[in-house]
Amino acid sequence: MMEVLKQAGYSLATLMVVMNYGLLLVGLVTIIVARVHGRIGPPIWQPYINILKTLSMRTALSHGIMFYLGPVFRIVGGIGLLFFMPVVYGSSWMQNFSFAGDVILVVYFVFFGMLGMALGAAESGHPYSAIGIMRGLAQNTAAELPFALALMALAAQHQTLSITDIVAAQQGGIAHWNMITNPVATLAGMLAFFGMMMHSPFDVHLAPQEIPIGPPTEFHSSYLALMQTNRSIFHAAKLILFMNLFFGGATSIFVMVVKTFALLMVVVFAGVVFPRYRVEQSIRWFIRIPLAVGILAVVISAWK
């Protein structure tokens, strides 16, 4: 029992670290995008203020029980994703509950929040929510295809599905990273990564001008606060997942920060350069080049 409590405490600490890191990342991304536009941009702590502000809204309304639970599902999905993943390799307190499952659990957990959120948004009865969900789901499933292939390539390469073991296999310098030892799988994974992060050009599900911000159209006040919090956690967790899978994991928080930041920058810079894809365009994109790369990765890894 004490073990469990201790683990819970550690995980909570990890959550705090990651949440703050994620919030700062979100703020930073906004600034970077602003600078690319030639603007100054908001202060880096703007996400905190935004959350405080949404929390200080005095009224709220509810379309029904699922509408109320939707954001909870969403944030459980985000935190769960983080909790079932070791954040820092070797750290005694940042292993979270990774003993409960391997990478398949983690990958499936990504969908937990998505599904719950979709239920909540759909309960609002707003057609734009439904359209946004449709776009998000459709695009995400397509992105999963190259990701699944990359994952299988890693499984073939390392003969394990445990994230800890995959990270362990990459220790000992950059030459051991999967980025170097299995570049094709990494490429497939990274192409999928663009879609999974849902940044431009893969952010048509939000489409602010066309279907006012898609799924969360109806969410506000404290619901929105939860979702904003989750956004940062989820972002950071996905970054950590990819860092663990392809870029050697991290042995300290510092390394984690550096690597995930670098990873995020790839997506952000791609996002500021490319315009937005329509849904069917992005799906077609995923089932062409990334799919081919993924199959190549599996073939190479299995052949070894």
Partner: peptide
């Protein structure tokens, strides 16, 4: 290859 603790999850 891996492990799964349904109860813990």
């Amino acid at each position: 290859f891996g492990y799964w603790n349904g109860f813990a999850v």
